[in-house]
Computed example of a mutant assay.
Amino acid sequence: MSAPNKSYDPVEVEALKPDVIERQRDEALAAIAAAGSLDALREVKVAHAGDRSPLALANREIGALPPHAKAAAGRLVGQSRGAVNKALAARLAELEAERDERVLVEEAVDVTLPHDRAPAGARHPLTTLAERIEDIFVAMGYEVAEGPEAEAEWFNFDALNIGPDHPARSPQDTFFVEGAARDRDSGLVLRTQTSPVQIRSMLDREPPIYIVCPGRVYRTDELDATHTPVFHQVELLAIDKGLTMADLKGTLDHMVQSLFGEGMRTRLRPDYFPFTEPSAEMDMVCFRCRGESVGNPDRPCRTCSNEGWIELGGCGVVNPRVLVACGIDPEEYSGFAFGFGIERLLMFRHQVADMRDMIEGDVRFTRPFGMEI
């Protein structure tokens, strides 16, 4: 920058000539008006309003003018720069408004598009059915009891009056984790039923006892359409004074009516189980045909095969030997027990033809059942 020169005529400074300043202003205003995007406008701002723009360089030359000439030159350059800055602000507002309108159109959300591109999951029907059964008995005053899946032989067999020579205790029927050792009379098995939970409950609690025991059990069955080596059971146990088979029958009737609707009834057929005496198989009337398919060829029923009844599970009065093994006086207390497989019940309720569908994890099987909370 040159030093002040009082004898220098400012008219002859090229950068400060009025026609030059006006031309630079007009060029800047034309470039601003032609900017079609925010990026283009930023480039125009650098070229015409930045530190190295013609008007900025002309403004620097004012310092070299004599004092009496600075005012006119400053006013001329200042007005031009002000016009350029005002045009930049106006064009910036216009381009930002255009951008916002474009974004609203281009990024608009079409609420009519499918919303389930990531479909919601569904709880497994075995879980929801087990919880529904639990709710039925909890409403009747029962408690939910649980126990370990790797169980001692004593809890799984001996306490249930299943002797050492019983076929169920062979490796062909039971998964053994550890055999009996010298310092331990009882081996370790994967429980074959949830009945050990009943034994543990009778050992830990004082009568009266009313519990329902859901859980996973294991048996050495081949995996096919009607069998699986890992399945689920629900068992119930009631220990109190004066309980009889009539109480068991009433409990079973209430359960099937809660699960399948009013009018359902049950029947008991004599059977044998080591842990109950007397023992019975419980059948319920077919919930599809309500028994009307029996002897009626015009109305066949695939669910019960035209028999009118469906076998659900085993039940009976708790064997006194089981009570004694758990420290309960059979002369004072009696009880009843009942157990059935949840997979079998699910097949009945929803016409599931192949049990393998329940364990393969295919969402096409679980999703139709939906989600229950």
Rank of each mutant, 00 (worst) to 15 (best):
110 D>T: 05
150 A>W: 06
110 D>W: 00
130 A>Y: 00
170 S>Y: 03
158 D>L: 08
175 F>L: 11
137 F>S: 11
132 R>I: 00
137 F>R: 08
146 E>V: 08
138 V>P: 07
139 A>G: 15
152 A>N: 10
112 T>D: 11
120 A>Y: 08
160 L>S: 02
118 A>T: 15
169 R>C: 08
142 Y>K: 00
159 A>E: 02
124 H>Y: 03
161 N>K: 07
151 E>D: 15
158 D>V: 08
164 P>S: 10
136 I>R: 04
135 D>Y: 00
151 E>P: 14
112 T>R: 14
128 T>L: 09
155 F>K: 05
121 G>T: 02
150 A>M: 15
158 D>I: 07
121 G>N: 03
145 A>T: 03
160 L>Q: 07
107 E>Q: 07
122 A>N: 08
163 G>I: 10
132 R>F: 06
109 V>A: 03
140 M>P: 02
122 A>C: 02
153 E>C: 02
108 A>E: 13
134 E>Y: 01
130 A>C: 12
141 G>L: 01
168 A>H: 10
152 A>R: 13
158 D>G: 11
115 H>S: 14
148 P>D: 00
132 R>Y: 04
131 E>T: 07
124 H>C: 03
156 N>C: 11
153 E>S: 12
162 I>D: 07
126 L>V: 15
161 N>C: 05
178 E>D: 15
143 E>S: 11
161 N>E: 14
116 D>S: 11
146 E>N: 08
115 H>I: 03
169 R>I: 04
133 I>E: 05
129 L>F: 08
171 P>C: 04
123 R>G: 09
139 A>P: 08
164 P>D: 12
144 V>P: 15
132 R>C: 01
172 Q>A: 08
154 W>Q: 05
145 A>K: 02
140 M>F: 04
130 A>E: 14
163 G>D: 12
129 L>D: 06
151 E>F: 14
148 P>Q: 00
156 N>Q: 09
135 D>K: 10
130 A>S: 14
172 Q>L: 11
167 P>G: 05
151 E>A: 12
131 E>H: 12
109 V>K: 02
121 G>Q: 09
